[in-house]
Design a protein around this nucleic acid. Sequence first.
DNA 1: GTGGACTTGTAACAAACTGTACAATATAAT
DNA 2: ATTATATTGTACAGTTTGTTACAAGTCCAC
Lengths: 283, 283
Amino acid sequence: MSIQNLIASVNERLTPTELRIAEAVLDDPMLLTFGTVSALAERAGTSRASIVRFATKLGFEGYSELQKSVRDGVSQQLTSPSHRVRHQDGPTAPIQFEIENAMHQAFEVLDDTCLRAMADPIVVAPNIWILSGETSMAGAHALYSGLSMTRPNVRLIQEHATGRELCGALPGDVAVVFDFARYRKNAVIAARTLSDLGVTIVAITDGPLSPLSSLTEIRCELKIPAVGPFDSSVPAVIAAELLVAEVVSELRDEARNRIDRLEVFWQATGTFLNYGPRPNRDA
Amino acid sequence: MSIQNLIASVNERLTPTELRIAEAVLDDPMLLTFGTVSALAERAGTSRASIVRFATKLGFEGYSELQKSVRDGVSQQLTSPSHRVRHQDGPTAPIQFEIENAMHQAFEVLDDTCLRAMADPIVVAPNIWILSGETSMAGAHALYSGLSMTRPNVRLIQEHATGRELCGALPGDVAVVFDFARYRKNAVIAARTLSDLGVTIVAITDGPLSPLSSLTEIRCELKIPAVGPFDSSVPAVIAAELLVAEVVSELRDEARNRIDRLEVFWQATGTFLNYGPRPNRDA
DNA sequence: GTGGACTTGTAACAAACTGTACAATATAAT
DNA sequence: ATTATATTGTACAGTTTGTTACAAGTCCAC
């Protein structure tokens, strides 16, 4: 039961001082969530003892218990919905469960603000460099595939050719770096070098502990589930695809024109068999 | 500045114990919001003093000040209306729905029987050839990455080099082909040629109408959602990862030994930075 | 006015808190 | 091997905490 309802249920039995306390609590719930007895007493213009009596009148053992109850409620509010359903039963497909969880988390992290922050530099940069460790290549490929159909000068850097390929990078370019624990030395060092060079780093990684996180604020931090002995690429791929979609929606006609020209080229070279439905181009 | 960014900004200067603290804090932010120094110390398996030092390293006067900062952030979150509506709608909601649907369908299709049917040939074949259209490369890469860490003689075929690379294929080999509507002529023709040659085809595709489906009974048929103007690679990646997991579990010690040897090699060449927790290898 | 019930603040206290000085231990460098 | 450095835990000091006992004050009935 919420603190508001709790107070309502006893409001007719409250003494004048207790009423002042109640008003203070209702006016600023954070007082009860974080505050001490002393703080609340001062705010309500009363003594600490009255605060404790107020708590007992609400049916708690003391102030501590009242505060614990309030905090539990706040915790529930704050924890993500995916977190709440985490402890379901039926571990028939633990992998599926893990991946779905990670996916939920990915969609939560990749909200409008985050996507736009990552897409904006990509839209305007003269060159895009995509870096990735060998083991997290799937996400990088998804991004490369989508971006290169959307705008020019997108390059995917193979690990063994990092130096040779990156030497063309200039200030104002953007490097999108995929890297997850345990972080590839090659990718991290390359990112750091590019950053020093004035290249904007967009990081798709797995948490504030990532060495990439200290390089840039333009980043998303994904939860990576395990599939058997290896890490899943699904979150990285989702991030890449949403990022592409965001870039497309920001570039609008420019991207659409490029896609159409690509389509002409495909038709001319007979790339496809043209069976089945065309992919969706309305979004 | 959020606690996550704060930790990110110093993550490379953290000592092992402080890293454990950081992990605990990131894992359960409520611990920092409500908990005491003692509680955090116990959770992180360290002493109270280290908690205080951790707080100072983050730039605060002490733990109290750190906690105050976190609480200020939480207060803002709770009072701002954006928090309440954040998890409901948004431009990514329909995409999320589509992808989740496709994912469920993928897990349904990729049941034990199907996975084993696809994994069995891969386990015994002398050579594995992975084919994919340029646009559905992410799944192929996920499979290549996983399989090549699991068994020898796995090759990913680039479209422009199909002929040159595939001429080494022999009867008894296995070709895993990724292809979705609108089907790549190159991939389909290559698969057909290989099939005629006596190579077992394992198809990861999108339905009975696929030209690949007529080539082999060893296949899975996925539903492919759209993300913006392009098709999602997520189902293909999931299929690839589950397939790898199945192959690993069938190869057992053989795969484990190879992974261990790979690990030795990684260690020797210093591939990783080895920050953060090791990936899960128990599953 | 006086007694009794009720309300409220003061004071005392034990427990728990944070922060710091110091010692022990582990790690690195010479 | 030995010094120097960095890291971590222990112990203690000084506050602040929540709680409770007690006294002062208030209100009402008679």
